[in-house]
Design a protein around this nucleic acid. Structure first.
Lengths: 295, 295
DNA sequence: AGATAGCTGTGAGTTTTTCTCACACGTGAG
DNA sequence: CTCACGTGTGAGAAAAACTCACAGCTATCT
């Protein structure tokens, strides 16, 4: 039998149970079942040959020896956490366009912060080129319109579905049911994606139809706001319109079709193994594919 | 992905590697292979997204961040060890007869101390009854001649093999080759095991032979010393004579036969789970059975 | 009193992690 | 230029940890 090493995981379980006065609560904190905590505590008690927790009807209370040990362990674990957190390098920075930030990311960021309270996310509002190192970007959401830098880790998120959107009343007033009905509509466009309407017409097999923009906005999100205000019909990816559609401010009377682009996640290669980066990437991927699959 | 908990075992492995400047050495300290340590360190580096150890040709050296972390962790682990060691209750006490202590245990105790430097063993020289609680006995080596107290954990060690022993010259002078040759020998006995010769005669199927002791010693070990000094022939368990036989001070010209008794280990029930108790018990069991099996 | 809710304990079985093995590679010393 | 020594790693084995499902206990509620 080898000399006894500290049973670290058991010590952690015991510390949590002693601190919280409950194995079940400790189990929640540790993300395991109460049985696992119970076993860990018994293991310690067996190894030391003395009782560490008094079992009360609806709780546990440390014995004197247990309290002493728990305090000691708490201090040790704090010290470790401190040491580890001191390593924490550059904060996590997510880069995406203003439109994605406003119409998709920010409304959903709350759930990420709830589930990952320990991760601090910084936003970098940008699109197109990314200099991961200079701008300290960890993860970027980008359209496949742009080419990713060399060596970057790319994860495909969703194919962009695009379609005309407008206020429900506007659609009703226009009787908007076929592409041809758009002839009488006020066509909204953006400077940054001037080709959007053309791409859609190609996608629905009507490349001949001419739909010149009556009004051009500098920003995608301004155009969406304009459409939601009943000022006309915009061409937008579903992912950016779906919240407003759900809220009843927008409708997509002609539906959405697969456009020519995809959304991808670009991950800074030197940070790809960092756990906060992995968690953020996984979260974005899940949120976006879940939404795309209609859940 | 759940919020990240401290990968305690990986941290311990890293701390050891950083402190010792070598994964292999750390592996020895932790009782694992170098591969296990290597994996742990990489796991940490991946999780934190930075390098902790610089790999040098024949060693490793902590990076600045790694050194900082290692120092921090070292302190934390020390704190834990301290807390745990403060729990350490009554010292470990082993009870056995003076003869076993002198002729078997003490000569072997060195190897136990070597392999278990952290365990402090106290001896209680006694035989017969054991009061585990009052005398703070953890483990006792006892013959099956005695009845163990209730509730005690009993582990059978070996069947006692007994036989006549004497100095090699004495055996030669006497031409000692059959039990009948003992008629001309000086028979040594002890007060505490007066029945020994009778038991042996029964065991070899010669209960009729009369071998009254010419000399009776108060202690078994005195009798063995007397036999080793050429003063006569003693009846002794092999386990107590084997060292002197190996050293050439004694011979067993008629061999050994199974006697009526066994040696057992009695373990205090309330301490049976304590790791030092378990280790001592395992060591005794292994040493004794190994020796009995002739290894 | 009896039912109920909220704990902890535990046997059996499964999942996941960890470790070992065996071999590869790289470097400095002899 | 080879050997010795230390680290890296894929595949599989071993061990630890965990879950599940059900048990028991006790205070509180009805």
């Amino acid at each position: 039998m080898a000399p006894p090493r500290l049973p670290l995981n058991a010590l952690r379980a015991f510390e949590a149970a002693a601190r919280l006065g409950s194995m079940s609560t400790a189990a929640v904190e540790l993300g395991v079942t109460h049985g696992a905590v119970s076993r860990h505590v018994r293991e310690l008690e067996a190894q030391f040959g003395l009782s560490l927790l008094r079992r009360l009807p609806k709780s546990v209370a440390p014995t004197p020896a247990g309290a002493q040990l728990a305090a000691n362990l708490g201090e040790a674990f704090d010290l470790m956490r401190l040491g580890v957190s001191r390593l924490a390098p550059s904060p996590l920075t997510l880069s995406c366009s203003a439109t994605i930030a406003m119409n998709w990311l920010i409304p959903r960021l709350g759930t990420f912060k709830r589930d990952h309270a320990d991760v601090e996310v910084r936003l970098n509002i940008n699109y197109g080129e990314v200099d991961f190192v200079r701008d300290e970007i960890s993860v970027a959401i980008r359209s496949s319109m742009f080419r990713a830098p060399h060596e970057v880790v790319i994860r495909s998120l969703i194919r962009e579905e695009i379609g005309p959107i407008c206020h429900p009343d506007y659609a009703a007033r226009l009787g908007l049911t076929t592409p041809d009905d758009l002839a009488g509509a006020r066509i909204l466009g953006t400077a940054t994606r001037a080709a959007a309407w053309g791409e859609w017409l190609s996608a629905i097999g009507r490349p001949g139809l001419e739909l010149p923009a009556h009004e051009t906005y500098d920003h995608f999100y301004l155009m969406i706001q304009a459409a939601a205000s009943g000022l006309g019909v915009a061409m937008a990816p579903r992912i950016l319109a779906s919240d407003e559609i759900a809220r009843g401010h927008l409708v997509a009377p002609l539906g959405f079709v697969d456009g020519p682009h995809e959304l991808s996640l670009w991950i800074a290669p030197h940070l790809r193994t960092r756990s906060d980066v992995k968690r953020l990437a996984a979260w974005i991927q899940e949120e976006m594919t879940r939404q795309a699959s209609g859940a």
